[in-house]
Computed example of a mutant assay.
Amino acid sequence: MPYVPTPKPVVDRMLELADVDETDVLYDLGSGDGRIVIRAARTHGARGVGIEIDPDLVKKARKNAKEAGVADLVEFRQGDLFEADISEATVVTLYLLPSVNQKLRPILFEQLSPGTPVVSHDFDMGRWAPDRTVDLEGDTVYRWTIPEEIPEDLDE
Rank of each mutant, 00 (worst) to 15 (best):
L15E: 03
G48T: 15
V141E: 03
P2E: 15
D124S: 08
G138P: 09
F82C: 15
L112H: 00
R35C: 00
E88Q: 06
G50T: 08
P130Q: 13
P5H: 09
V11R: 07
F76K: 03
M1P: 00
D28F: 08
V4S: 07
S87F: 00
A40D: 08
L136G: 02
V92W: 03
Q111S: 14
P114D: 05
I38T: 04
E110N: 06
V91A: 04
R47F: 02
R13D: 09
V118M: 05
V58D: 07
E156G: 11
E156S: 06
I53H: 01
T23I: 07
L154A: 02
P5C: 07
L81G: 02
D124N: 13
V11E: 10
E52F: 14
T90I: 08
L96I: 14
V74Q: 09
D56Q: 14
I146R: 05
F82Q: 04
E152Q: 14
V134G: 01
T93I: 11
A61K: 13
L108A: 02
L81F: 08
S99G: 09
V118C: 03
L73A: 02
E83L: 12
V20D: 01
D56S: 06
T6C: 14
D24A: 04
L29E: 03
V70D: 06
T90S: 11
L15F: 04
D28S: 08
Y95W: 11
D12R: 03
G50D: 15
D19K: 12
I150R: 15
F82Y: 11
P106Y: 11
T133Q: 11
A40M: 06
E75G: 02
K63L: 11
T140Y: 02
R35Q: 07
Y3V: 15
E110V: 04
V20M: 06
V20L: 02
I150K: 07
R132K: 12
V119P: 05
K8R: 10
A84M: 10
D85V: 13
D56K: 03
E83G: 15
L15A: 04
D155M: 10
L108R: 01
V58R: 12
M125L: 14
W144E: 00
E88W: 00
A46G: 01
F82N: 04
V70I: 10
G79Q: 10
G34P: 12
D80H: 09
L81K: 01
A65S: 07
E137T: 07
R127H: 10
E52K: 05
L154G: 12
L29V: 14
T6F: 03
T93R: 14
D122F: 02
A61L: 10
F123N: 05
L154D: 03
